[in-house]
Structure formats: C-alpha cells, structure tokens
Design a protein around this nucleic acid. Sequence first.
DNA 1: CATAAATGAAACCTTTTGGTTGCACAAATA
DNA 2: TATTTGTGCAACCAAAAGGTTTCATTTATG
Lengths: 118, 118
Amino acid sequence: MTRDVFQGLADPTRREILTMIAHKSLNVNSVASNFDVSRTAIYKHLKILSECGLVVLQQQGRERYCEARPEKLNEVSDWVEQYRQIWTKRFDALDAYLMKIQAQKKTTAKPKKHGRKK
Amino acid sequence: MTRDVFQGLADPTRREILTMIAHKSLNVNSVASNFDVSRTAIYKHLKILSECGLVVLQQQGRERYCEARPEKLNEVSDWVEQYRQIWTKRFDALDAYLMKIQAQKKTTAKPKKHGRKK
DNA sequence: CATAAATGAAACCTTTTGGTTGCACAAATA
DNA sequence: TATTTGTGCAACCAAAAGGTTTCATTTATG
C-alpha cells in the first residue's frame, strides 16, 4: 500500500519518530521504548511511515532497523514552495494592476467631477 | 478550537481548497461549487483550515470570504528545515568519525597479520 | 535443546474523519 | 412583503485512525 506523505506527517507521534531516527537508525523496540504507548502502536506508525516512503525497515538478524528517508520530505517543501509562488504571483498581478492605474492617472486628462472617460 | 497545521494539510481536498483561494479569496459557495461533495462537507474543511490558521473567514454581507494565510505554512517548512539539519549533522558526525579513523591509520604503525594494537 | 527476545499480525474497541440530509436564520432581491 | 440566496449547525452514518491484548514465528543465547 502506498500513502500520502502529508498524511504520514499528520500525526505528532510519527513526526517524533522521524526526528528520533534521523539521528540514528533504531530497531522497532528501541523506537517504541521512547514512547508510552505499546510497541504494537509504534509498529503501526512505522508501517504507515514506510508506506509513504519516509522510512525504510531493514532486516538485520531478528531485528529491523528503521532508517529515515528525508528525501521524501521534498514533496512537502515543494508543495509549500509552489504554494508560495501562487501567492506571490497574486500580488504581482495586483502590483501590475496598480501600476497600470497609476500610469492611466498620469496620461489621462484630469477629469471633471462626475466626468466620464470615453 | 485550535488545531495542528500538519493535520490541516493531511487531506487532499483541503490542500486543493488552499490552492484555489491562494489565487483569489472566494466565498463558501464558490469554493464548494468547485468540488463534487456537498457544501456542508466543504464548510467543514474550511472550518478545520481556519482552526489551524491556514484560512480566515471574513464576513461580508451574507457571504463569507475565505482568505488564505500562507504564513502558517512556515511552521511546516520550518519543521522540514530543522529536520534536514538533524539529518545533515548526522553525516557531519560520520564524516568526522571517518576522518579520525583516517588520521589514526596514518599515525599508527602498520600491524602484523593477527597483530593486536596496544 | 529450552528459553528469551524481536517482531508481525489478527481481533477487537473507541474516537475521529469525512460525508450526508435537513432545518433555521439573516441578508438580498423580485 | 414574499422569496431566494448564502450560510451555520445539528443529527446521523460509515469508514479510518489509533490504540489495546493476544498469539505465532523467527532468531539468539544460556
């Protein structure tokens, strides 16, 4: 199953897990021991994180090491960045509009009160 | 009620709404008309978005305009950025370790096969 | 070998999500 | 004034999320 990276980040426990294993890959039990919910609950979070590509689980003997995949976060920062561009363009358009108005004010004869442009 | 901005972004419909109103503020009905779910469903999404500060709803006559608040996205990019720093430092530490090993190799006498240091 | 450790997964439960329909109400309009 | 329009909100519902306990399985280890 594949899953949305935004959804993966939605849960605070999952974000904490990511921070934790960013420092150093840990096996499932080690990750779980840092939280006060059950190992199974943490395992489910890890599964979700791996389903959205933020984590890979590497078998090593009887343990499985959880390794962070921060490249996946690019999808998030890309979205935010693209969003900012839309937002910025919006103001560029407004600026352009205001400039145009300014230009018109200068080149147009000052109309009388109640005057009407052709 | 206040809400987590990551949770606000978790739903794809909500991200679409944000993109939509980034271009131009729209009233609730206009937003809803762009989706094929009910107006009430969109209203709920808008409520969630406003609860996490990504949107403000401005009353104007009988309409309510939905205005994007992209500053709130800083919380997201900040988190991602901070995360990348942790990740990067991790490799810096590894680099430092490898450099140290390299240095030791150079200064230590080449041991015999099966030889033991110290 | 017997046992402990690490994990995956099933079964189950409660709360949250995302959706619906229906109704009330204020603002605009014919 | 009567009616339409835009909206908020309650009640309800199904599915997903997040958690638990329990059990099976594989790998290390005394």
